[in-house]
């Protein structure tokens, strides 16, 4: 059940250091939104505030609002664990659980949940998630081998399968292809295209072509200088951002004239 996200006046701090300031941004449901921008401008930080992963870093703080279908996920009575169940995440480096088999990796989120699923239900979810992650055919006869025995690209798709097995509404991806070869990258890009039918997807990428290929909307972040907070420069339809940016800085960045 894809949901829309609204970010309002978001500031992010690490201890004393203000990493991001004043971000206001809407992410429509059932679409792919790409975050682009130079290194250190706070793309990952903003992404991690969307499922409250931000606060596992000691000393990290957030001000402002993040609304999920209108509900503030930073409101008082909100349980961050429930937020993360609704907003899944895929990381830059594939990180399957090393002690678990492929099957158990996919089932991990469900097995570690309070409600118990029957074995057949679990089988069903694993099958569906692996199919949705375009991995089923490659692992169908080694489901009980360790997850770490897969190639990097397969591991990343395994992580995507693991993330969607808990049926989130939103999927966050932080440079999911940066550790992968071009063929695996293509496989994941295809996958993103198919996943957006059901999920709201936000993806951070350094690859401009990738952003142009997979996303419907693009948000460009930058920072004025080292030690300065990052900020959102502009966001809009991907075609508009790449074809006709409103801001000089966006134009410079996408045409490779940055810094």
């Amino acid at each position: 059940m894809a949901r829309r996200i609204e970010i309002k006046d978001l500031d992010i701090h690490y201890g004393r250091f203000c990493a991001v300031r004043g971000v206001t941004l809407s992410v429509p449901a059932r679409s792919v939104t790409a975050f682009i921008g130079p290194s250190g401008c706070g793309k990952s930080s903003v992404l991690r505030t969307l499922n409250r992963m931000h606060e596992v870093v000691p000393g990290a703080r957030v001000e402002g609002n993040v609304l999920l279908d209108g509900e503030d996920i930073y409101a008082r009575d909100i349980d961050p664990v429930a937020v993360r169940r609704t907003v899944g995440m895929v990381f830059q480096r594939p990180n399957p659980f090393p002690t678990m088999s492929i099957y158990d990796n996919v089932a991990a989120g469900l097995k570690l949940d309070k409600r118990r699923l029957k074995r057949s239900e679990l089988d069903d979810v694993v099958l569906r998630s692996l199919r949705a992650a375009n991995l089923w055919d490659e692992v169908r006869d080694r489901l009980h081998k360790p997850g770490a025995s897969l190639s990097g690209g397969q591991q990343q798709r395994l992580c995507i399968a693991r993330a969607i097995a808990v049926e989130p509404d939103v999927l966050l991806m932080d440079e999911p292809c940066s550790a992968l070869d071009p063929i695996s990258t293509l496989a994941i890009e295809d996958l993103i295209g198919s996943l957006k039918e059901r999920y709201t997807i936000v993806i951070v990428t350094h690859n401009m072509q990738q952003a142009a290929r997979v996303s419907d909307r693009t948000a460009f972040f930058t920072l004025a200088g080292v030690g300065q907070p990052g900020e959102l420069v502009e966001d809009g339809d991907t075609q508009q951002i790449f074809g006709n940016p409103r801001d000089r800085r966006t134009e410079d960045y996408i045409s490779g004239r940055f810094g």
């Binding site: 279908d69 509900e71 349980d79």
Partner: peptide, 11 residues
């Protein structure tokens, strides 16, 4: 779309 449930669940 079913309603969001984000409040504490005992965890």
């Amino acid at each position: 779309v079913p309603p969001l449930r984000l409040t504490g669940s005992g965890t």
